[in-house]
Amino acid sequence: MLRDITIGQHFPGNSPVHTMDPRVKILLTIAYIVMLFIGSNPLGLAISTVFLALLYGISKIPLKLIARSIKPILPIIAFTAVLNLFLLSGSGEPLFQWWIFRIYPESIEYTIIMAVRIICLIAGTSLLTYTTSPIVLTDAIERLLYPLSRLHLPVHELAMMMTIALRFIPTLIEETEKIMNAQKARGAQLDSGTLKQRVQALIPVLIPLFISAFRRADELAMAMECRCYHGGEGRTRLKQLRLRASDVVYGLICAVVFVLIGLSNLWFPSI
């Protein structure tokens, strides 16, 4: 289960999606999320899904990975689907009726749209983190937010914290598994018992995890200091961000697709 969390894991490659300017990628991802909500009608979502599938194809990211990033949110999708299916009421005759449960054609449509929307949302944002190294990503965020540092917002510090958080996800996952195994070896029952017992059984996992994370933070801070880290002032970057012609072209292509998604509302009213 823990191994399935892939957020923040980068899969290096050389596709146009990988090499695109991260700032453009971030803006496009945000636009994509917005369009998912604006164009949440069958046609709009179909375009969004095909577009995303195309991008995944271009970036050569294995299907297994997409499945892996969606797997942890399956319960959420299932939960919202069930709620939508039974709680929404439509105008016409219910298709199915039993006790207080009624299923209308509209609610089925809405449920499907909702599920597809969530999957696209996760898969779309995952594409960003799969194809962009976190350092580049935070660099891009830092640059996009740079105007805010005039307002004394600690933009560099925030970006640095994000980089480090992303960097430590795999390490901490590994560590959690180690601690869980260690506690299991001492007789802890993590997978059985009532909900309350299971939650309680997590405490002996979380406490060592937190302590070790603090210790890591301490050591990391020292190692960073040893490598002359002194805040964002006067820092340069190995990889400079320069907007190239290809970025503009790809950005425009995406923009056209987004406009199409938006226009789909003309044919199908958004739900």
Partner: peptide, 13 residues
């Protein structure tokens, strides 16, 4: 501990 002194997620970075 090598894990606690590596800041970036790609070696060269």
């Amino acid at each position: 501990n090598p894990d606690n002194q590596i800041v970036a997620t790609v070696v060269e970075e």
